[in-house]
Design a protein around this nucleic acid. Structure first.
Lengths: 199, 199
DNA sequence: CTAAATAAGCGCAATGACTAAACTTTTGCA
DNA sequence: TGCAAAAGTTTAGTCATTGCGCTTATTTAG
C-alpha cells in the first residue's frame, strides 16, 4: 500500500470534475445572474454532460454551496464545549459571529461580496441556504437539551435553537453584524436566563 | 346601477373558475398526495386549460393557499390594538393561537386534519406557507417599532418579529399548541421585558 | 500481466412545471 | 347593434430533473 498517495486517480478525477462544475457555476452565476444561467451552460462550461452534473450535485442550487458539512458538528461543539460560565446563547452568538469572520477571510476576494449578494437576492438560493441551516436545527436542539439536562423534546430548547439560527440570517443582512448580533441575542440571553439560570 | 348585484357576471365566473381550481387541487392532493398530482390533472378536473390555471395561481403550491391576504393586516392590528397593559409578545402569542383556533373551527370537517398534515409533510408546501408568513415580517417589524417608538430599522424589533413568526411554525408542529406557545413565548416575553420595560 | 468487476460519463428521450404568442369566445357597455 | 377588454384555448416552446442503455477508464482479483 502507498503512503504518498492515499487517493486513486479515479477519485482525484471525480473530485476535479466536481470542482470544475462548482467553479463554472459560480463564475457564470456571478457574471449573468442565477436565473440567466441554465444547467446546460454550466455543464458545457465545465465540459461535461448535464447528466454528469446531476450525478455530482442534487440540484442547481447545490452547485453554489460546495461545503455544507462540518456545520452541524461545529454548531453542536459550540454548545457542548463552551467556556465554563458562558451561557448557551452567548456561546452561539460568538460561534455564529466567528463563522462570519471565517468567511470574511475571503473578503479580500472582491467576489465575496458579490457571492453574498447573489445568495441573498436569489430566492431559490436564499431558501436553499436556509434549509441548509435548518437541517441542523434538530441536532442543535438536542445539544442544548443535553447541556441543561432537559428532555430531548423540550420546547424552550427547540425555540432557542430555532431563534439562534434565525438570528444568524437576520445578522447576515445587517450592515453592522457585531452590533446586530448583540441586539438580537440580547433578547435570547435575557429570556433564556430567566428560565434557565446559570446556563 | 344595480344594488342587488354589486358584482358582474364576469367577476363571478372568474371567481368560480378560481374556486373550481382550488377545490380540484385540494381534492386531488388529499386523495393522491401532492407529488402524485400533476398540474394537468388539476386543470382537467376543473375543466380548464393549464394556461388558465397559471393565470389564476402563481404556481402549483399557491393552489392550496387560497387566501393569504388579511394576514398582514391582522398581524399589525394585533400589535397596534393590543389591550392596554399587555406586552407585545403576549399580544402576538394570543393572536397566533387565535388563528389556530379560527382554523380549528373547520375541525369538524374530517378533511381539516388531513389538510394540515398534507402541508406539514410536503416540503414544497411547508416552505410556501413559511414564505407566506415571512412576507409580512417587515410590516410586523414596523408596527412593533412604531409601538415602542424605536427607529424603523431597530434590530431588536426585527428580531422579535422574526422570532414570533418562527415560534408560530414551531407551535404548529407541536401536539400541545397552547403549552408549546407558552414555553416558546416565555423566552421572548422575558427577553423583551428586559430591554423594553412596559411594552 | 490480464480479465472481469466497477465506476464515471455520455447521449437521448421523457416528465413535469411553467411561459409566450396568437387566436376565439364571452361579457360589459356605449 | 357593435366593439373593446377580459377570460380562455391551443400550440409550441424552455428549463430542471430523471431513467436507460452504452462506452470508456480505472481498479482489483487471480
Amino acid at each position: 500500500m502507498r503512503v504518498t498517495e492515499p487517493t486513486g486517480r479515479r477519485e482525484r478525477k471525480k473530485a476535479q470534475t466536481r470542482q470544475s462544475l462548482a467553479d463554472a457555476a459560480l463564475e457564470l452565476f456571478l457574471e449573468r445572474g442565477y436565473d440567466q444561467v441554465g444547467v446546460k451552460d454550466i455543464a458545457d462550461y465545465a465540459d461535461v454532460s448535464v447528466t454528469t452534473l446531476f450525478k455530482h450535485f442534487s440540484g442547481k442550487e447545490a452547485l453554489v454551496f460546495d461545503q455544507d458539512d462540518d456545520l452541524e458538528a461545529a454548531l453542536v461543539a459550540a454548545v457542548r464545549e463552551r467556556t465554563p460560565g458562558q451561557s448557551i446563547p452567548q456561546a452561539l452568538r460568538e460561534h455564529l459571529l466567528l463563522k462570519q469572520s471565517q468567511l470574511a477571510v475571503h473578503a479580500a476576494d472582491p467576489r465575496f461580496a458579490d457571492f453574498t449578494r447573489l445568495v441573498q437576492e436569489t430566492p431559490a438560493l436564499r431558501d436553499y441556504a436556509h434549509r441548509m441551516w435548518t437541517r441542523h436545527e434538530a441536532a442543535l436542539t438536542r445539544a442544548i437539551a443535553e447541556a441543561v439536562g432537559a428532555p430531548e423534546d423540550d420546547v424552550s430548547c427547540a425555540a432557542l435553537a430555532r431563534f439562534a439560527l434565525e438570528a444568524r440570517s437576520l445578522i447576515l443582512q445587517h450592515a453592522e453584524p457585531r452590533r446586530a448580533a448583540g441586539e438580537a441575542f440580547a433578547l435570547l440571553e435575557h429570556g433564556w436566563a430567566a428560565s434557565h439560570p446559570g446556563n
